[in-house]
Amino acid sequence: MLDALNYYFEQRKFTRFWFSFGGRISRLSFLLGLLGLIVAFGFFTVVIIPILHSIYPVLVLLIYPFLAALLWSTVTLKIKRWHDMDRSGFHVLLSLIPVIGAIFFFLILIIPGTFGKNRYG
Rank of each mutant, 00 (worst) to 15 (best):
P57A: 00
P57D: 02
P57F: 00
P57H: 00
P57Q: 00
V58R: 03
V58P: 03
V58S: 07
L59M: 11
L59G: 08
L59W: 04
L59C: 05
V60D: 10
V60E: 12
L61N: 05
L62D: 03
L62R: 01
L62Y: 08
L62N: 08
I63P: 06
I63N: 05
I63Y: 04
I63Q: 07
Y64K: 01
Y64C: 01
Y64F: 14
P65M: 12
P65Q: 12
F66T: 08
L67Q: 14
L67Y: 12
L67H: 02
L67F: 15
A68Q: 02
A69P: 08
L70V: 12
L70F: 10
L71Y: 13
L71D: 08
L71I: 14
W72L: 13
W72S: 06
W72V: 09
W72Y: 11
S73C: 02
S73V: 03
S73Y: 04
T74P: 01
V75N: 00
V75W: 04
T76L: 00
T76W: 01
L77G: 03
L77M: 01
K78D: 01
K78F: 07
I79P: 07
I79D: 01
K80P: 04
K80I: 07
R81Q: 02
R81G: 09
W82K: 00
W82A: 10
W82G: 02
H83Q: 09
H83D: 11
D84W: 04
D84L: 09
M85K: 03
M85I: 15
M85D: 08
M85Y: 04
M85G: 06
M85T: 15
D86K: 07
D86R: 06
R87A: 15
R87P: 11
R87F: 14
S88Q: 01
G89K: 05
G89Q: 10
F90N: 07
F90P: 00
F90C: 00
H91W: 15
V92C: 09
V92E: 11
V92D: 09
L93M: 10
L93Y: 10
L94Q: 07
L94D: 03
L94T: 09
S95L: 14
S95G: 14
S95N: 12
L96Q: 05
I97M: 04
I97V: 15
I97H: 03
I97E: 05
P98R: 06
P98M: 05
P98Y: 07
V99G: 06
V99Y: 12
V99D: 05
V99I: 15
I100R: 02
I100A: 12
I100D: 01
I100E: 03
G101M: 13
G101Q: 11
G101D: 12
